[in-house]
């Protein structure tokens, strides 16, 4: 069973950037990127969530993204950003909940490093300042940094679409052009749907604005307040939807398509 719902999912609106918590509900990071596999027929299949600064840096792009990603590569194994397979998610509602406990995860390493080398050395660090929680906890809280990495996570390889793998950030924000080179806007969201063995990209949401699609007004998932809804729907009136099959080529930092899709945001498009 997948943690994702059966109805179509807009990933930028409902999955990317969400908080990720472990089985106890403790924060372990955010959904910094998504990994897809281009296997079989149809659109790429969602295989995992990517977390940590290296994945985030790849999404931010530019010099700053490079710096953030560089901080992520300070990890000793240098194996790419941590990836959690999609069937290791317990739930992907308002926040993403993992099946694993944080001590079983090989990340976030920096939390353990800072704990061991800085915070743990300041007097009073090991006592909880709260009276609300039972003192001591599970007793295993200190020093998990040297635990072996859990077998349930892996590391994503390098970015790029050549190895049959693709990331959400390879598509989002990319310019969409038709065969004559005319710009149709940029990819603003990816629509997934259940397809046999998992969730596959069904199509792209394209737009010229940035905010209306991102906030959910273009698909009617957020309704009010009245004033915002009117302004945002107007901003999103040229939002279009394109089936994955209509893509000719994904190369050179742009998506070439063979038709210009259809207007998006009618009642049937709402998930």
């Amino acid at each position: 069973m997948s943690a994702l719902p059966d109805h179509p999912v807009h990933v930028a609106l409902r999955l990317l950037d969400r908080r990720v918590v472990d089985a106890d509900g403790e924060p372990v990071g955010r959904v910094d990127d998504l990994a897809f596999d281009r296997d079989g027929d149809g659109g790429p299949r969602l295989v995992g969530i990517l977390m940590g600064p290296e994945a985030l840096g790849g999404r931010l792009g530019g010099v700053l993204g490079g710096i953030v990603a560089g901080a992520g590569r300070l990890r000793p194994d240098g194996a790419g950003p941590p990836e959690v397979a999609i069937d290791e998610l317990d739930d992907a509602g308002p926040e993403v909940r993992l099946k694993a406990h944080r001590d079983e995860l090989p990340f976030p390493r920096s939390e353990g490093w800072v704990r061991e080398h800085v915070i743990g050395r300041i007097p009073g660090a090991t006592r909880s300042s709260s009276s609300g929680k039972e003192p001591g906890g599970d007793g295993g809280g200190t020093g998990p940094a040297d635990r072996p990495p859990g077998g349930r996570t892996s590391h994503a390889g390098g970015s790029g679409a050549d190895d049959g793998r693709i990331r959400a950030s390879d598509l989002l924000g990319t310019r969409v052009v038709d065969r004559d080179g005319r710009s149709l806007g940029r990819v603003r969201d990816l629509r997934l749907r259940v397809d046999g063995d998992g969730h596959r990209i069904e199509g792209l949401v394209m737009g010229r604005g940035v905010i209306a699609e991102r906030l959910g007004y273009a698909y009617g998932e957020v309704a009010g307040p009245w004033l915002l809804a009117v302004v945002m729907r107007r901003a999103a009136r040229r939002t279009r939807y394109l089936d994955w099959d209509a893509i000719d080529e994904l190369a050179g930092g742009r998506v070439t398509v063979r038709d210009d899709g259809r207007p998006y945001g009618s009642r049937e498009d709402r998930s």
Partner: peptide, 20 residues
Amino acid sequence: YFGWPWGKFEKREQASRFNL
């Protein structure tokens, strides 16, 4: 923003980056 554990109710060793 980064999804770190935070807060004074967290045991400090679990929110070490926040405290740093």
